[in-house]
Nucleic acid binder design. Sequence first.
DNA 1: CGCTGTGTTGACAGGTCTCAATATAAGTGG
DNA 2: CCACTTATATTGAGACCTGTCAACACAGCG
Lengths: 235, 235
Amino acid sequence: MHRLALGRFTDFIDISDEERAALDAIAGPPCDVPARGVLHRQGSEIDRVYWLGEGWVSSGVATPGGLQQIFKIHLPGDFVGVPSMAVTRAFETLTALTPVVVRPILVEDIGKLFAQQSRLAAVLFLCVQYERVMLMDRLTSIGRSRAIARLAALLLNLYDRLRSIDPAQPPTVDLPLTQSELGDLVGITAVHVNRKLQELERQGLVARQRNRVDLVDIEGLRRLADLPQYQLRRD
Amino acid sequence: MHRLALGRFTDFIDISDEERAALDAIAGPPCDVPARGVLHRQGSEIDRVYWLGEGWVSSGVATPGGLQQIFKIHLPGDFVGVPSMAVTRAFETLTALTPVVVRPILVEDIGKLFAQQSRLAAVLFLCVQYERVMLMDRLTSIGRSRAIARLAALLLNLYDRLRSIDPAQPPTVDLPLTQSELGDLVGITAVHVNRKLQELERQGLVARQRNRVDLVDIEGLRRLADLPQYQLRRD
DNA sequence: CGCTGTGTTGACAGGTCTCAATATAAGTGG
DNA sequence: CCACTTATATTGAGACCTGTCAACACAGCG
């Protein structure tokens, strides 16, 4: 039994050796992308998704107003670029935040996968539903809570996901993101990000040095973020 | 060839008679729900999703802060309650906004569907991806645009979807929603909804009478909403 | 007829954005 | 290694958007 990471903290699902092999078979060779490199840009033609092996990737769009909205920070193990499958031209821009290793998977091969591995197909289906749930969470977060709570939620989210990849992960997040990009994530201005980070620090919830954020008072952060907790359906 | 409506304006996909029959076979008998009735409440156990035949259904959650966030207004043809499949307890509360007719589909039967109708499974997969894209759209809308633009976008969205169900749909939306619920949709206060609706009216973009909104200047509304347009991948 | 939910209006407070200036860090080429 | 350039972070002042609270109007409904 292997484990397949497709999304967030707890979203791991056991898959059989055969299923793992089927995935392995359709995934192309590992491919390096330098930091700040672009996997694909919104509006371009798409024939593949990517299986993220190493590094961080952001998924977002540029808005007509000149601003940007980042939907998700992808961590190792994630499939990236999947939402763009549904439309003919890429919906999102995928940017490497760090040096990255990905394996491409052609969209047509995923079709074959559905035909041959129906259980795996169902699992993928559920994973996407889970992503949908996470997006709804973001939506309520942005729509119904303050900037500082959203920042806290973001930090916790990243920390929890890093820890689910490596249980030894210390309570620290080393962000390869500018404050401007943090703002694009939580839907506020870079200037405001700065002020609210300072407020988190003043309240003793985090400590900062350069791009590193230490989560000093995790319980306090969770209280501030006020996150719901979900339990996944395991087949 | 039949057409299967799963989401928004343009998201129709041709399915074969056999596939249609397979869907029909697992769907339970039509079931009436009165206006303001609840299909399921967040946190309750879930074993089914619903195929909406007639009426409007809202999908949303109550936030810890006492507010509410509505994710989507479902129109006839939509599958509702699907995101809750991914978690053991219902993520969302489904409320009938009008008298409603639904056909229940058991989650376990969807598993069978995946095994037997792999093409249909792939289509469902893409539909969910599309829903994900729509959610990302909402996210950027709420995160990066003004309340008035979001209201305009909401009205256009409903109008476009109504028109895709019935091409004869006049440029009018009869909302079975209170202003408070409109606020829950776009992430603002009921009071603010009121003011911004008046502003839309003052600008000559809409006319209002009771719960009915006439889209007077659709082009103007689209300019204000500043929506992107997508083209769906047709298998 | 009085309830009750909803819509409307006003005054005010607070959050967030914009613009602009400065400080700091990170690169770059000499 | 240093001077220079550029990107990012920080800070302040002011305007705008949105939320809160409270009052009132209006409709449907018993």
